[in-house]
Design a protein around this nucleic acid. Structure first.
Lengths: 359, 359
DNA sequence: ATGAAAGCGCTAACAA
DNA sequence: TTGTTAGCGCTTTCAT
């Protein structure tokens, strides 16, 4: 007759189990924890007692003396962004398989938030951290993680001077390919739009971008222009584009310009959505009036009219790899080289020749 | 001269700080933890010592005696699904504001996984749980949570006989509205497609669906038919529709049928995407050949040609509310009534008259 | 193989 | 206000 009252009854502890099984606390703990030397007889008695009492280990207590929490911390800018949603699944799947739980903190791309999150996670004694850092001049909070000896893996963004594993897609070549596609179709007035919070001038085209995917892609685009002997239109690069209504404004002004852009490259799927909405609202036809390429091959890009030409990144795999690398670091295994994840241009139908210049 | 070796140096503890500040461990702990009575003099000395030593509290130790981990567990079927991504942000934002971290477990809609997740989270002594339970005959794992006295909030799905807070959108009325829209346009052969893993026959139209949103919506649809004195085509309900290639098959067979469906209602955005892809592949025009309505007002539904008529659900708010309710339960506050979240039909252009029966 | 006892880092009585 | 002393539930020497 178990007392199934709804009040939280005291949970059974190792001591309780030990008493019930008539062995010492130490032996019960060994049997329960699966370590040390235990005779079959004792083990079965302990396990039976445990089952009867509904014993469940207190992981906090266990973590306290082992120093391992079997938990990894993940800090991202925006889980709502499908990019991170997918990456998160990769992380989660991999972590779970290795016996780790994941505590997720969303920073809203805010640096102070990120600093705080990293600290809190360390206070909670996570065994390792995966951070997709916001662009910021200061990375002492991450350096502190490294100094503390806790494994840290950077996702999607490298940080200068921080010697840790980084898992990110390589976008330079794909950006090069995408730009060549555009150039070949006859475009030169190409705009790249990103919400990245870059330091410095809004359109300084690469300064203050650090080692971000955006910087890489811009480099790829420039190389493509150089390759054709043409000049990259720095002035059409739009960073710090968020939030939504600002993106709309940017698109509108890009279109209103006397020297109109003929192609737009969107930095991710969230920004792409807003750009497309604004284009729609302005009655701009793709690709007749404007060519369009976006990063991330979201499922919906295939069912648009026309289907969108995109640069796809193996996002799930990036997440999975970051967790994989982190886990092996936690376990102190030999530092495997982080695999490469090249982004890839997928041609569909949103790129065409620029409109006849009928201004 | 700090030893910035990369080896994990022993972290400063309360005892270290106390020694440095020349006070008792208890006083140091009080000053550090911000509880009890501490003189200004002692406090400043302790805080200084702490700063100098780089002291950080060990939350595991703290949790062990307080019994509070300041962490809530969230168990969902699929984080990759944008629905949960958004809900997760609502949860995360709300939890963080209340001082809680979130550990997220993805079950892949697998019951065994869910059972395990719930157990592990309890072992980790989370202060409360938010679970979006997979449909399963057995919910003893959740009953166990309730019995243990740990706060539990169900997200998106109610469970018969389990007396806990439930946060979910009300879809009956919106489904009724959507169906009336379809009926008014002249549709009767309407198919509802869902990936929900229902027990019993695949098309038993509501049996074995428990208290799920799908059951509610089906009820709304039936009511609309009844309201018009027409008979609901149970045989067109397609449950257990996953995974992707199976969805395609279902759509294909629905179209191939001699008595073709004239309208499809998709249960969520993930399934909608596949349905739309298949329709696209089959050359079916919306709404000329087929009318289409989906649940969840994803941003991309607005930029399709034509824009999609959808049923929108306040997903972020659902997540936020579930966390809010959970936190107040954890704090032992008076049980606030869970707010209502009616889903809402948003008419756009994917519904039109059925095609002239030119078979 | 087993048990006694000493912690892990912190909070929580209880005295002083 | 301060310090002393017990624990929280578990792992881990160290004997036996």
């Amino acid at each position: 007759m178990t007392s199934s009252s709804s009040t939280r009854r005291r949970e059974a502890t190792v001591a309780d189990v030990a008493a019930e099984a008539k062995v010492s606390k130490a032996q019960a703990a060994r049997a329960l924890g699966g370590y040390g030397a235990v005779s079959d007889d004792v083990r079965t008695r302990v396990l039976e007692a445990a089952a009867e009492l509904g014993y469940r280990p207190n992981m906090l207590a266990r973590s306290m003396n082992t120093g391992k929490s079997q938990t990894i911390g993940v800090v991202v800018g925006d889980i709502e962004n499908p990019y991170f949603g997918l990456a998160m699944r990769g992380i989660s799947d991999t972590a779970k398989r290795a016996g780790y739980d994941v505590v997720l903190v969303n920073t809203g791309e805010d640096h102070a938030s990120e600093v705080d999150a990293v600290r809190v996670l360390q206070d909670k004694r996570v065994d390792g951290l995966i951070v997709a850092p916001a662009l910021a001049p200061d990375s002492t909070h991450l350096q502190a993680v490294v100094d503390s000896g806790r494994p840290l893996v950077l996702l999607d963004r490298r940080i200068r001077g921080l010697d840790v594993d980084v898992v990110a897609a390589q976008g330079e070549q794909a950006a090069f390919d995408a730009t060549r596609l555009l150039l070949a179709a006859g475009h030169e007035r190409i705009s790249y739009i990103s919400t990245i919070r870059a330091a410095g001038q809004p359109s300084d085209g690469g300064q203050g971008l650090g080692l971000t995917p955006v910087a890489e892609r811009l480099a790829g685009m420039k190389r493509a222009f150089r390759h054709e002997g043409k000049e990259f239109p720095e002035s059409l690069v739009r960073l710090n584009a968020g939030p939504e209504d600002n993106i709309r404004r940017i698109v509108a002004s890009l279109l209103a310009d006397r020297d109109r852009v003929t192609a737009i490259v969107a930095s991710d799927s969230v920004i792409a959505l807003t750009v497309l909405e604004e284009l729609h609202a302005e009655g701009v036809e793709i690709p007749a009036d404007l060519s369009f390429i976006m990063f991330d091959d979201m499922p919906w890009t295939r069912i648009l009219t026309p289907p969108l030409t995109v640069v796809s990144q193996p996002v799930y795999e990036l997440g999975a790899a970051s967790a994989g690398v982190l886990v092996s670091r936690i376990r102190g295994e030999a530092p495997q080289p982080v695999p490469e994840f090249p982004a890839q241009l997928i041609e569909r139908e949103s790129v065409g020749p620029p409109p006849a210049t009928g201004r």
